[in-house]
Amino acid sequence: MDHVGEPRAQAGAGEDCGFDRQVRTPLLLHIGYHKTASTWLQSNLFDARDQGFMTDPATPRHALVEALVRPDPLFYDPAAAAAAYRPASDLALAQGRTLVLSHERLSGYPSSGGRDRQLIAERLAATFPEARILIVIREQKAVIRSMYSQHVTDGGVESIEHFLVTPEPRLCRKPSFSLEYYCYDRMLDLYRGLFGAERVLVLPYELLARDPAAFSARIVRHCGGAPAPVGEAKRVNAARPLLMQAVQRPLNMLLYHNELSPGALLHIPRFHKRYARLRPLFAALSPRFLERRLDARLRNVIAAHVGDFYAESNARTQDLIDVDLAALGYTVEGRK
């Protein structure tokens, strides 16, 4: 069954790509979370004509942040933002497809504790009130481990211990990571309240690895389409060696003046992109025993810090989306 809305009627014979123009949802907002196979979805589903989706051919993905996230709240104009995407939306409607606007930043940013996620949600509702929503969640300890690595890749300098704990004096002069960011039930409540429960689909990332066809089919049906075959759920962005990340942290502090590391002694523009070219070298030279040791330490620190913090939230999320999260490795209150 579809846990957040029943499948729509399928198209009759002769319709473009097998979709009924009258029931196909014209717009899907995929908001993340970060590190939940967004790149795979964008490459294998949202750009696949046979799935009935399309992305804006005239606008790069990063423009979504420029248009929907960055504007000052006192200057944001929902009508102007909607107008910018109207040509692509009209094209999708004419072809009986669903336009997908997909960017993880629409769910906030973990390193800042997602402080603007409610503002963004309200902005999306004011701009695209008829859209459907896709949220992909992931077991919290695993996603924090992955996101911390991304934090370093993006220019962060903190150790895992400092990343997890809000610095003194805790006056929130500058937002930092917060465990509350991954209380998924709160995000689900927010989007259901803004768009309606039937318009919000939440899927666990872990289901993609188990059955990419079923995972993708849920998204297609959520938008009123008939699913087509998809490729294997292969990792698109391979994890970097942890030694590479350990070396990057002090280099960020010295050479990369950015939002996550202001005040570097020197500044090499796009340092993180240049440093990324060294990945094959680190992959070849980093000893496996060292990688295992670094990984075990990282996971142990995160597990000790998180504890059972998410158990109650996960139990409620499990009930809301009707998926057995405990069976997928999530800590759920009342389940061992």
Rank of each mutant, 00 (worst) to 15 (best):
E259T: 05
E158K: 01
C183E: 10
Q42K: 02
P262G: 07
F289I: 11
R186E: 09
G196R: 07
E130N: 07
R199Q: 09
P212A: 05
G329S: 13
H103R: 11
D77H: 01
V157I: 01
T39G: 03
D322C: 02
A233G: 15
M253F: 12
M187V: 15
G155P: 01
P212T: 09
R173M: 06
Y33M: 04
P26R: 13
V143Y: 00
G156Q: 04
P110Q: 03
H34L: 07
A79V: 09
Q245N: 15
D56Y: 05
R138G: 11
A92Q: 10
V230L: 08
P204A: 11
A88D: 08
T166Q: 14
L101E: 01
A283D: 00
A233D: 13
F309I: 15
L29N: 07
L201V: 05
L260E: 02
E198S: 15
L207C: 06
G32Y: 12
S286C: 06
G224T: 13
R24V: 12
M244C: 07
D189M: 12
Q150K: 11
H3S: 09
V332W: 00
A238Y: 02
H272C: 02
S146G: 12
T331I: 08
T25A: 12
Y181L: 00
A83L: 03
L290Q: 10
E15V: 13
R199W: 08
G12Q: 07
R192F: 12
G329R: 14
Q22W: 00
F195R: 05
A197W: 14
Q10E: 03
G113A: 05
T317G: 12
N314P: 04
S159W: 09
P87Y: 15
L106Q: 14
S286H: 02
G113T: 12
R279K: 15
D308F: 11
R292T: 09
I135D: 11
T153E: 07
E104R: 01
F128C: 07
A239Y: 00
Q140S: 13
T59C: 05
F271V: 07
G96Q: 02
D308M: 10
M244Y: 00
P71D: 10
R145W: 03
V69P: 01
A80R: 06
A327R: 14
R274I: 01
I31V: 13
V200I: 00
S111T: 03
I135N: 10
D154E: 11
R297G: 13
L74M: 10
L194P: 07
W40A: 00
V236Y: 07
P175H: 08
P262N: 09
P229L: 11
A239W: 02
I120R: 06
R49C: 10
G307K: 04
I268N: 08
S146T: 13
L242G: 10
L74R: 14
L254E: 07
L41T: 10
P129A: 06
E291Y: 10
A283W: 04
I31W: 07
A327L: 15
Y205T: 10
E130V: 08
A13L: 11
G224K: 12
I135C: 14
F282R: 02
Q248G: 01
Y330P: 13
A63G: 00
F282N: 03
Y181F: 03
T55C: 03
M54G: 08
S89Y: 06
H222T: 06
T25Y: 02
I268K: 05
Y76D: 13
P167Q: 06
R288L: 12
G18L: 09
N44T: 02
P57R: 04
A94S: 02
V65N: 14
